[in-house]
Design a protein around this nucleic acid. Structure first.
Lengths: 350, 350
DNA sequence: CTGAAAGCGCTTACAG
DNA sequence: CTGAAAGCGCTTACAG
């Protein structure tokens, strides 16, 4: 059955025949049925208000009767608006960006936009191909997490005057608009908080990504500026998963000086650490305190609950889409940075 | 700058002017530059082998020189192939389907397909709109998780002879092809396993979704058929998250008869239960055993490690894409069901 | 408020 | 192996 359809594909006449047989109606069919021109049907579809009520009603009935579904591919070509937004994230399996993606997709679909999802992979290796794919599809906008560092891609996008929203960070020179927060400030805030709580020997557990590195630097800058010793630390190649936290716990125990608090670059790390500490009979936070990052659902649910930094990922997604909305409404966006901030959530683990 | 671009949009002449000014090259520009016809450039792009080597080289150089990026919207309209696949899942925030989505996106992008991501929401409420959107975009295929139960959508897809892959289940009558496993069999297997381990008073903790209900039924059928008492149980409205496991633990303690094992419909539930049990000083599995579902990363990382049912979500994604590949290669797919099976993973918690 | 017509940027059967 | 031409299904300025 499918093979048959494929065989037909090659020949336009056969294709037309095939469509007739299968009865996929097009705009013309609706127009004929309603006794109006194709132009009027198109207007009704895109801007019902400008069509006479009676005409509109006939068209509505014709659409219903024919089961017409507009061809957005053809529409996009004709109008130079794709109603498609590319969302590019590193991964989706277990990602801190998932709440952002979810919020974006929901907001965009309210506006009648579709989402083209691209996974850029570790270190954003596939970013250039995905940018190119987004341009190929004539995406109305590209939303990505992190900062676009690939120079050729940047130039391409700037050259095309593309709408690009960078999220989860505030680069000094965004391509277009950035929605995020200062990772450096997060690190500094955590340092200040821990100092206030009387901790003296922090140990940093970080993923090696750009953003985690900025938080780390923020912590170190603030901590040492206040006279603290340079913290001990451990780094992980890529993503920080639960398992790393466990491994880290063991490695930490072999350090010369025992830390009194561990600053983790994700709640997954913090969780892994916690589980391992409990299994080893180490009391948290009395013998070892733990701070996470992200305020994932688990942070509030673990025992002990995890002190962490809350990032409102869904809000980042909504703000990003909101920029697109304002643009679509003709507004010129003056700000190039939209800071959604963050909140340190004090719980039991530190 | 953006507002200016928008102002231009309305007028095609201005648009053409705008493009020239901004220099977005099209196929014709490449053809002119290479001294060949547009048809030949198109052929080179879609099937380099049928173009003479020297010609191809000139075209390649012209593409490079102009910075041409093909317009897949126009191409899609002309060829009736969108190279777009719609992937429809309930959510992406914390979903058991994420590994499947990830694998699909990666495999599809290898084939040069883009992914249109749709979130169907609780109870797949937005499924009909998303099906319609996918058809509007002329998606080459629609991959969805679960079974498509909405009758109008089913009819629409069947009427259009659409390529539809249903995943994570094996419905008796798939629309087209289904890739998944038997949830009933999972439940039965878990029952058999626990009986073999000597457990006598299972307690079922289930989400109310279709698939969880099938596993529950499979458990009950097998358990009672073997002479077991009908298990006690608790149900959750929608998704099963970590927090539910904690709440469930407390509720369970008020039951008349204390269960000796809890069968959870997800690893998140199991994890929540475990955390709460540990906090309450209840020993797992000696005083209370726990079984999860899904074999998420955390299942192997928790202390104690969680006995669960492994579903190879990534494989489901790959198999689904593989069906599309075989179709594209002209193969007729005889099987309507592709069973990827499951594995009970025996760990410490039960 | 509505219609006729041109055009969006490609692909592809046909003919050479 | 290559070109000329028709066509994919819409949108929209123009004219009424």
């Amino acid at each position: 059955m499918k093979a048959l359809a494929m065989a037909f594909r090659a020949d336009p006449l056969a294709l037309a025949f095939n469509r007739m047989k299968r009865g996929i109606p097009k705009l013309d069919d609706v127009a004929r049925q309603a006794g109006v021109s194709a132009a009027t049907v198109s207007r009704f579809l895109n801007n019902p208000g400008i069509v006479a009520t009676a005409t509109g009603e006939r068209i509505r009935a014709a659409i219903e009767a024919t089961g017409y579904v507009p061809d957005l591919v053809a529409g996009g070509l004709a109008s130079a608006k794709s109603r498609l937004v590319a969302v590019l994230v590193p991964d989706v399996a277990q990602s801190i960006f998932n709440a952002t993606v979810e919020a974006m997709v929901e907001e965009l679909s309210i506006d009648g936009h579709s989402v083209m999802l691209g996974l850029t992979g570790i270190e954003n290796a596939r970013m250039p191909q995905l940018i190119s794919a987004a341009l190929s599809r004539r995406a109305d906008a590209i939303i990505l997490t992190g900062i676009l560092s690939d120079k050729p891609s940047r130039d391409l996008l700037i050259g095309r005057n593309a709408t690009v929203i960078e999220t989860w960070g505030l680069p000094p020179e965004p391509i277009d608009v950035a929605v995020g927060f200062s990772h450096h400030a997060v690190g500094a805030d955590v340092a200040r908080f821990l100092r206030g709580r009387g901790y003296r020997r922090p140990h940093l557990l970080s993923a090696s990504g750009t953003r985690a590195m900025e938080r780390r630097q923020g912590f170190i800058d603030d901590w040492t500026a206040a006279g603290g010793e340079t913290p001990t630390e451990q780094m992980f190649a890529s993503q920080t998963r639960f398992g790393h936290g466990r491994a880290a716990f063991r490695a930490m125990r072999e350090l010369g000086t025992a830390p009194d608090v561990v600053v983790c670059s994700s709640d997954w790390l913090a969780q892994g650490l916690l589980v391992e500490a409990m299994a080893a009979g180490v009391k948290v936070p009395d013998e070892l305190a733990v701070v996470g990052f992200g305020n994932l659902a688990i942070a509030a649910e673990m025992r002990p609950t995890i002190t962490t930094v809350d990032i409102d990922g869904a809000r980042i997604g909504r703000e990003a889409v909101n920029v697109l909305r304002r643009r679509a409404a003709g507004e010129t966006i003056a700000e190039r940075h939209i800071d959604v901030g963050f909140r340190l959530i004090e719980r039991e683990s530190a």
